[in-house]
Design a binder for these strands. Structure first.
Lengths: 365, 365
DNA sequence: TTCCCGGACTAGAACGTACTAGTTGATCTC
DNA sequence: GAGATCAACTAGTACGTTCTAGTCCGGGAA
């Protein structure tokens, strides 16, 4: 391949230099007069404009106290120098950081929806969202600690699986808000949708379509899982169907859904409808059914949960229970701000809504 | 529902107070002697221990210069007070922030994989990754500006779609590294895998299995798209199959793949194999095929790209071209550090690898 | 004894910003 | 014409850390 590199491990790798002078050498001193190797500061702008840093600060923040002429000149000079305010110094100076910390799971589409909405909800309240990801190789504790060091004013944890003890410790140092998780812990705020009622909606819908044998592939130990399981059993019992209510241990991934569905299809009398723990799980269910040539909703109906991106895909059109990410996010930000303001933690429970799409239909039998 | 709230829009929402005294009132002054309403600082710890802040700093950072007895005592007191170092103040004082900024697309599974690996790769080099998400409602410019204000030492942009002009501006202020995107722009580093060769691997594989009519659903204007399109056409021509090479405008979502596949199935003579722009796109393709009762790989073979989480799902087992997220991430971090150290921007090209799984097989005809 | 050395510790100055409490000089009021 | 008012600007401190340049003290070497 290319010319050899001094890096030791360049197996299967090509590297060639690029550019011709626009590299880092130029970057070091764009302003000219600035001596140190850092980025331009307010003092650099002030010096270039022949005024005090205080006045530059006034202009940059856009507060009254500077003449229009000066304002224009300072902004122009700042732009020329490539000046960007140092957020760390800003926040350090201001007593309030106006930052909300958010932990989320990197591979959970619904968390992606929530994060997006939290960005905008926080922005509308003059706050900034700082996100910290949870992944197989990055524990929730690591993610939370990162937020702690950033001096967020509050932490919003999406679908947290933190131990009670750790949660208590966190809540002692920082206003803490749990989203989409149920907890009896006092001292932490909760914003969630009514999981029990949500699954109830799904059951009602299916029963109204004539289904009797309905299975629920649950979320195993995931947050909200036990509520949904309970909601399923209660709703089924409410329709007198406790004997045909079937609960399977599942999980929140496509794999869990696929395994669950394969198991159900192996039964002598498979259910005519399946309610999955979430959309990802339902995706796995649908995939297995499609591969088996099983018509959805002709032979089997499927309901997901979350109304995430996955459910909305035009070729999927999944019937699902919507937690309404936007509403949840807004409630989360509002609650977090209330906590910051010193109000007592509350539990906000939103009402979910059934979104009927194309994966449910009349029972066959 | 519950008792009325003072919030105006409490439609479908229940709120009840929770907890009994472990709320924010307690949180305000856990240390006891601390007057202001903030979190404990180094000075608080120093006061409680009866020593100077400098010595506390020495203990907290774990550098030599304190007796073992003091060390123990300070750590105990710090823990009791719930002291956490203020990262902003730390970074402000230190000339180097040791933070790498990363922008990524919230709903792109492969970006999730990359981010996860970047976290660990950065950590190994003593750096911290600060992530900033891109989503439909949050532009890449917004994401990049957030990083700029945080005084990251470098920016790593995953699959950026930034205009050349904006990219140039950014690169002038900050060492900038593009991942998985091709650019001729000098002054920015690039880490990508060889897209042309990658698609070539897929074509070679399919041709070896006897396929002749092969279609490529491309990535429309997405980064890397033109390289892959070119690679497809070149590889097909290399096998003398330029006449049966078929390129369709696609995109990087399931929807694009599904639409493309439906279109292909409507043809008089559909292809016997499809190479999608990425795994998400291939997911859409597979979904449509499953629904049509079309056997994969019996009737049609499908190849994805990225080897993301989606391809590895046990019930999917997608044949795909691996960009090896871990390797890409490590190269990205290494390159970013090189840029920070003042070395000239390079283009690092990794060699992709074909991962044969269950969605490809011998051509039927 | 004297001198020096080194371990344990501290005073105080940065870092880049925001903000309080001014200081100008000009215009307005009666 | 004297004081008041106002707009435009500045000096200097504080935010919570790190780090340089010390001080202090006990003990070993000469």
């Amino acid at each position: 391949m290319g010319e050899p590199e001094e890096r030791p491990d360049d197996a299967g790798r090509t590297a060639r230099p690029r550019g011709s002078g626009d590299g880092s050498a130029d970057r070091k001193s764009p302003g000219g007069s600035r001596a140190r190797g850092g980025r331009p500061t307010m003092a650099d702008v002030a010096r270039a404009a022949g005024i005090s840093t205080a006045l530059v600060s006034i202009v940059i923040r856009g507060v009254p106290g500077a003449s229009e002429a000066t304002r224009q000149r300072v902004l122009r000079i700042a732009d020329e120098l490539g000046y960007v305010p140092d957020q760390r110094a800003q926040k350090l100076r201001q007593s309030r950081s106006r930052v909300l910390g958010v932990t989320f799971e990197l591979q959970q589409p619904f968390h992606g929806d929530l994060v997006e909405q939290i960005y905008t909800a926080a922005g509308q309240q003059g706050y900034e969202a700082m996100i910290s990801a949870v992944a197989p190789s990055r524990s929730e504790t690591t993610a939370v600690n990162a937020l702690l060091r950033e001096r967020c004013e509050a932490a919003i944890l999406l679908g947290s699986e933190l131990e009670t003890e750790e949660l208590t410790r966190l809540a002692r140092r920082l206003p803490t808000l749990l989203v989409a998780r149920h907890t009896d812990l006092s001292g932490v705020g909760v914003v969630r949708s009514d999981d029990t009622a949500g699954i109830g909606l799904a059951v009602d819908h299916l029963v109204a379509l004539g289904h009797r044998r309905i299975a629920h592939i649950d979320g195993a130990g995931a947050p909200g899982s036990s509520d949904r399981r309970l909601g399923f059993l209660q709703a089924m019992a409410g329709h007198g169907l406790q004997d045909t209510a079937d609960v399977l241990a599942g999980g929140l991934t496509e794999t869990a859904g696929a395994e669950g569905m394969r198991y159900l299809l192996g039964r002598p009398t498979p259910p005519t409808a399946v309610i999955a723990f979430n959309d990802r799980c339902a995706s796995g269910v649908l995939d297995v059914l499609a591969r088996q040539g099983c018509d959805v909703p002709g032979e089997i109906s499927v309901v997901g949960y979350d109304d995430s991106r996955l459910a909305k895909l035009p070729h999927v059109q999944m019937t699902t229970v919507s937690q309404n990410a936007a509403e949840l996010a807004e409630a989360a930000v509002t609650s977090a701000l209330a906590l910051i303001a010193g109000r007592q933690p509350e539990e906000v429970v939103l009402t979910p809504r059934l979104v009927e799409r194309a994966t449910t239909g009349p029972a066959r039998s």
